[in-house]
Design a binder for these strands. Structure first.
Lengths: 244, 244
DNA sequence: ATGGATTATTGGTCGGACCATTGAGGTAGC
DNA sequence: GCTACCTCAATGGTCCGACCAATAATCCAT
């Protein structure tokens, strides 16, 4: 059955399989099969090179690829080596950021996706948020109030959204939210942003109150109002930047 | 303001910045700034190495990283080189797949996310799908009926979801859907899958009819019914695999 | 003009060398 | 006996120089 598409062309795509690709693939297979799992340590580079019968350079390119993909982490020194990582969404975020930079994803698409996503999240969080989640959200909102720099407050906002997503007890949403946060961060600029920030804090407290009351519709409405204000600001400043 | 978190530790994180990281960063910067854009060709490796004042090996590791990230594509031969790519969501999908493999994302999380996502998509598609989109969806459903192999039919299903997502006119949703499709593909197994596939085709036609009638609620309901059947199957086979 | 051989360019791989970091073990001094 | 320092081996990071393989432009013979 190897390489026999039933209906289309019968020519197999020509693949100049590079050594490092094959290596990556094999390691990924072991990962999917469970032979390798988070925390495991791969043999030393020089050793692996012998095992795969490739030069150390080729092997290193493979390891580098896996590291960039967030699968392993290379640590130097004695007792160092390549360690299989635990899942971190950073790479997904990075990949999405690259995608937006390379492509022509418009701000409109980003904000629309964000709004729709937060709509789901608020509904789920409303049903599932624990008291711990809610107090944490309040703590973050409170901390936002005390922060002095714009950047610090923005970091708080990102954390607020992340914790809210976590309250859904579904990590997929967390990934999506983190990605959009990172991308939209680049658009959040402008002189009047600071005053906007201030006014958003109260909205965050309100949302928590709605969540605690398990008032889904009110929570959704609050989030929508909240985001629409942010997006108005972003859009305005984006246009200003484009025209300048 | 450099490296002065106001409330936390005052020690800046020690970073042993590796050469290839710095190179990647610089190239990414040029990308974000627009100095580099899709289609551009980077200088030859040997040339770039001189420019960055690093060895060719280090430079190659940087290029390899960027290639794995989907930012550039290396092409061999005269007039070859590293070309800046147009945006492709493949890498995001790959990253998500890695994340799921590494982590312990449960099937429940995946299916829940999928359901919520498709809910949004159907609503948006209902409002925005053009006649072209709808006929394309029908064509795919029709093709599914004619395909003979399980794999080919699954490919059609993936395409159906992709086109549906495209009908929202928001590429972000397309990325999310593609990612989930790729991940959930691994779970779609079992002897009775073929009969399930057959019965799903009719559902796809129904959905298109609802979309054409702009009947949002009916469309959403159909999609929900559709996915719940799939998920029941997947869950059953997943349990069977786990117990075996 | 055409078509094949030649050549220059460029990424892919190789092997070997040295550096920098890190942890372990050993040693001197208290 | 404990601590502080030194030494050393392991390991990733980098460099160099070479050759291979694919590829497109060029040249040459027909």
């Amino acid at each position: 059955m190897a390489s026999s598409p039933s209906t289309k062309s019968n020519f197999a795509p020509i693949k100049t399989r590079r050594a490092f690709e094959v290596i990556c693939e094999q390691i990924r297979e072991q990962l999917a099969a469970g032979t390798l799992k988070a925390g495991d340590k791969l043999p030393a580079e020089r050793e692996l090179a012998v095992e795969f019968q490739v030069s150390r350079s080729a092997l290193r390119e493979a390891l580098r690829s896996l590291e960039v993909a967030g699968i392993i982490r290379n640590v130097k020194g004695a007792k160092g080596g390549a360690f299989v990582q635990t899942a971190e969404p950073d790479r997904i975020v990075q990949a999405m950021q690259d995608y937006v930079h390379l492509g022509d994803i418009s701000l409109g698409e980003l904000t629309e996706a964000r709004l729709a996503l937060q709509n789901i999240i608020v509904r789920l969080a409303c049903a599932r948020a624990t008291e711990t989640d809610l107090t944490e959200l309040e703590a973050i909102a409170e901390r936002t109030r005390q922060e002095t720099s714009v950047e610090a407050r923005y970091a708080c906002a990102v954390e607020y959204y992340a914790v809210l997503a976590r309250a859904t007890k579904n990590r997929i949403f967390g990934i999506f939210v983190d990605s959009l946060s990172a991308i939209l961060h680049e658009f959040v600029r402008g002189p009047d942003y600071e005053t906007l920030q201030q006014s958003l804090i109260e909205s965050r407290f309100k949302l928590v109150r709605h969540l605690r009351a398990r008032d889904e519709e009110a929570a959704v409405a609050e989030m929508r109002k909240h985001l629409e204000r942010v997006h108005r600001h972003v859009r305005k400043n984006s246009k200003a930047a484009a025209s300048g």
